[in-house]
Write a protein that binds this DNA or RNA. Structure first.
Lengths: 186, 186
DNA sequence: CATCAATTGTACCAAACAGTACATAGTGTA
DNA sequence: TACACTATGTACTGTTTGGTACAATTGATG
């Protein structure tokens, strides 16, 4: 049913884009109200803890999304190669082929890394560990699986940095191709 | 000679560490005065343009450092392999073995990427291009050199993100090792 | 249509913000 | 020591910040 009033989940989606665009410190309440078209009344109704609670909700939503679309297949799909292929597909689409930034990665580079320590560490450690387990199932040795999985997760983050700084999304696409090939055929 | 008063170059060094720690938006003037022990008088004397001019000076100093220590050897050293080895040595030491963040990389992920567009793009494009040229001199094909150089520069940035988010500097060290080996022996 | 909780706009607050003005203090040179 | 100039501390500005209070509005339910 169509509603004129918002729900918390709508707010989280909108907030995610605001934080991705402006970073945590750069996201003032006036930026939020302008970009989400929500007033302070609504925002503090849904997030009594203010900006910090908003960012926490966004991080939780990101974790939920990756857990469902990426991490669970890596852990559970009996076809390990298919899970890895799906990971690259989902990552490419999630990051808009290199045009969108990883909020967790951006947080990792700033003070937000301390402020949202568990969420940031949880996101990356789960990713690395689940991918590692998947690579072992795919037949790689334990050492090789750890190396490849760190290389892939780090490589994706670095590719986002590079693609954005050069304003060349194709750098991201090429990186994904290389990583996918390395994980699949070696 | 020992001076009680500061010079602009002292300020730039101190400011670099402040911006690296707090990011651009997170660096308020009160943070700067606290961490650099310089008053507003001095700061606006050296940087009449305020925070933006301070960040610009820091970016310029970073570019200067990399140009001298990393990019020039990549372009000019007749021994290409030695230049690449030096790059990894300097990078490892500059980023304190994964404990220090790349300010330019952090800027690349936020609005600062637009605000300091030329400096951010210049840093990464020079790095990629000079490394690419060096790899061609080392005997790689043009396509292979471009791939390897994007992979290395991106890989370093991603390794910084991952090492910091996991609070495991050794992740950075391992990544450097892998990248170095790939650039040198393949 | 009456009710009531969920949602929202508006006015407001103290603190922190970036930046300015300027008198004072420190420094190299003559 | 006297000078010119650079560097600095301090007090001040208007603006924006994150956050609160609360009355008005909305929408689902009986």
């Amino acid at each position: 049913m169509a509603r004129l009033v918002s729900e918390r989940s709508d707010a989280v989606i909108a907030l995610a884009e605001v934080f991705r665009t402006h970073g945590f410190e750069g996201t003032s309440l006036s930026v939020i109200t302008a970009q989400t078209r929500m007033g302070k009344g609504s925002l503090y109704h849904f997030f009594p803890g203010g900006k910090e609670e908003m960012a926490e909700a966004v991080l939780q939503e990101i974790s939920r999304w990756f857990a469902e679309k990426v991490f669970r297949p890596l852990r559970e799909d009996p076809d390990a190669d298919a899970a890895i292929a799906k990971m690259f597909r989902e990552v490419d689409s999630y990051f808009h082929s290199g045009r969108r930034v990883c909020l967790v990665g951006a947080f990792a580079l700033g003070q937000e890394c301390a402020r949202f320590e568990q969420q940031v560490r949880g996101y990356f450690s789960t990713w690395v560990e689940d991918l590692e387990a998947c690579l072992i199932r795919a037949g790689h040795s334990e050492d090789r699986a750890r190396d490849l999985s760190e290389e892939a997760v780090g490589g994706i983050q670095g590719a986002l940095v590079l693609a954005r700084s050069l304003n060349q999304p194709e750098v991201f696409e090429r990186s994904l191709q290389r990583l996918k090939q390395r994980l699949t055929y070696e």
